[in-house]
Amino acid sequence: MTIQTLEPILAEHPFFKGLSQEDIALLTGCASNVVFKAGEVIRREGDAANEFYVIRQGKVALEIYTPERGQLMLQTVGAGEIFGWSWLIPPYQWRFDARAVELTRALALDGQCLRNKFEANPRLGYELLKRVAHVFAERLLATRLQLLDVYGNRS
């Protein structure tokens, strides 16, 4: 698969929506197509975080293993969403396990490649950082609501 064919896929994904063709082209240079089978472990906690993923189809679970309760699902993300941001923040290590719940097609974006491009093009870097920050904020809100345990028994 050639790099050029990924450009329209990238441009269509909600995470990159509205970016200029020029920016898309630049980002496509860091992208590669990936497919994960249902149940396949994508990354494990502690792995080096060299990339992040934009999901085109399927569902990915972010999980953590606890000795007492086994493998716990913390959150699932699906088509149109992204996962993995440890590539942005030192020490660039995965904090959770990522596992495909069902057949998942995604684009992997190489973190080192992106960081180099953003150092050279801070405008694009800032734009992408804002988009990632938006995802951070949404995830944090969702996590806080989860913590409220709203369906729990108060009495």
């Binding site: 569902k59 999980e63 086994g70 699902m73 913390l74 699932t76």
Partner: peptide
Amino acid sequence: SSDWRGNVGV
């Protein structure tokens, strides 16, 4: 737990 096939999150 990880045998759940649906979504996790609010």
